[in-house]
Amino acid sequence: MTSAPLPDAALPPVVSTEEWRKAHEAMLVKEKEFTRARDALAAERRRMPMTRVEADYRFVGPDGEVGLLDLFEGRRQLLVYRFFYEHDVRGWPDKGCPGCSYLADHVPHLAHLHAWDTSFAMVSPAEQDNISALQRHMGWDKAPWYTLVGDDFSRDFDVPEMFGVNVFLRDDHDTVYRTYFVTGRGVEPLLPTLSMLDLTALGRQETWEDTPAGRPQQPPYRAERHDEYP
């Protein structure tokens, strides 16, 4: 992709190395404040109450029908991402939601999560044949992906459509509890590309950002499926 022209006036000011280091040290003070605030928020999240999961939610995987407890794969914690892949998605059945596809590209090597006794799975209303075909096409071979049986799970866990991440905990008696839920921009911690762009001078290049005049800006939420970028 060819870079668009960028006027000199839109670039950051040029200063000496000494002046840059002073500006950087001042920024690091604010970065540390942000880190501590994020740690404090995570500490509050760990102290939230949880609610017992009463229903026997069912899913279909490559090996047949399973329950929510099976998605833990024997581990203590579970994150479930509801991937928007169904009949009203643009490009169905060959394509999934662009935003969800963007997230699926960022799923890490799950051995790292598993080492902390935590599992990750994706769920969608789509049939397993469609899911398997899309996985092969997009190269998504890291996370297990299940078909939702009915609408109960989506309705009860605030993802009747579109997307969201529900977090569950299993006790020693195999009782499952819901501990957290995020949707919208709440899923950004799962998207390291955005964190990497936030470190750059041009940022995410979206219109909602507070950005100096002249910097490139485009409408937000412009993530594409990785095989559709220009």
Rank of each mutant, 00 (worst) to 15 (best):
G203E: 12
S195Q: 13
T183K: 13
L79Y: 03
R215D: 03
Y85K: 03
P189R: 10
D94N: 13
A133M: 11
Y180H: 11
L197T: 02
S119A: 15
A121G: 01
L79S: 10
P98H: 10
Q205H: 11
S101R: 05
D151L: 14
P98L: 07
H114G: 10
T211P: 04
S154D: 15
S154C: 12
V187D: 03
Y102M: 11
R136T: 15
E206P: 07
Q128E: 15
D117V: 01
T183N: 12
F168W: 04
G164C: 06
F157M: 08
W145S: 08
Y146T: 06
P98V: 08
E127F: 03
A126E: 10
R178D: 10
L202F: 08
R178T: 14
P212D: 07
R215Q: 14
Y180T: 07
A115G: 10
F163L: 13
F84V: 02
Y180M: 06
T193R: 01
T118Y: 01
G91R: 09
F84N: 07
E188K: 13
D172N: 00
S132N: 12
L103Q: 13
F153L: 06
T147G: 11
M162D: 14
F168Q: 05
M196Q: 10
V165Q: 11
D171E: 01
S154M: 14
F153V: 05
R178V: 14
S195D: 13
D156M: 08
Y177K: 00
F163H: 15
A133K: 14
I131F: 05
M122D: 05
D141T: 08
W208H: 10
L197Y: 08
A143F: 08
I131W: 11
E206N: 06
F83K: 01
H114P: 01
H109C: 05
E188M: 09
S119V: 02
D172R: 01
H106D: 10
L194V: 06
A115P: 00
E86W: 04
L134N: 15
L199A: 14
T207K: 07
Y177T: 02
A115T: 08
G214D: 04
F163T: 15
L134V: 15
D198E: 09
Y102C: 14
